[in-house]
């Protein structure tokens, strides 16, 4: 499901900013279906990993407290134009995806 993900990386003054947008329901497991009254099972992203030239620059652990269709941004020192940044995620049901982008 590569289409459910957008990643952008930009370098400025030797600092690279990575922005990622992932399409994901991020269900906490506390919410109830209004019609049936049944609890909607938890389904949220647990881990996000970002690699620059194959080296991990950021790992994140999330709970269901991150909003639906998560957005995140972070910065790391280094990085140059046209180098590769890869963002991957894994949810509590074992589903995962990743995307490679070139630093602009």
């Amino acid at each position: 499901m590569a289409s459910g993900m957008r990643v952008q990386a930009k370098v400025k003054n030797d600092v690279t900013q990575v922005k990622a947008l992932i399409t994901h329901p991020m269900e906490t497991g506390n919410r109830k279906d209004k019609k049936s009254g049944k609890v909607i099972p938890a389904n949220f992203i647990e881990e996000v990993l970002c690699e620059h030239n194959g080296k991990a620059v950021m790992t994140a652990q999330w709970s269901g407290g991150i909003s639906k269709n998560p957005y995140m941004a972070f910065k790391f020192k280094g990085g140059a134009k046209d180098e590769m940044v890869k963002v991957s995620w894994r949810d509590n049901l074992g589903k995962s995806a990743s995307l490679d982008v070139k630093i602009k």
């Binding site: 600092v15 900013q17 080296k55 620059v57 950021m58 991150i66 957005y71 941004a73 972070f74 910065k75």
Partner: peptide, 19 residues
């Protein structure tokens, strides 16, 4: 809500949206 870990080149900045 979330914990972000950096390598030795982290720049001390994160941004996200929370509930």
């Amino acid at each position: 809500i979330a914990s972000f870990q950096f390598g030795d080149n982290g720049a001390g900045f994160v941004s996200t949206r929370i509930k």
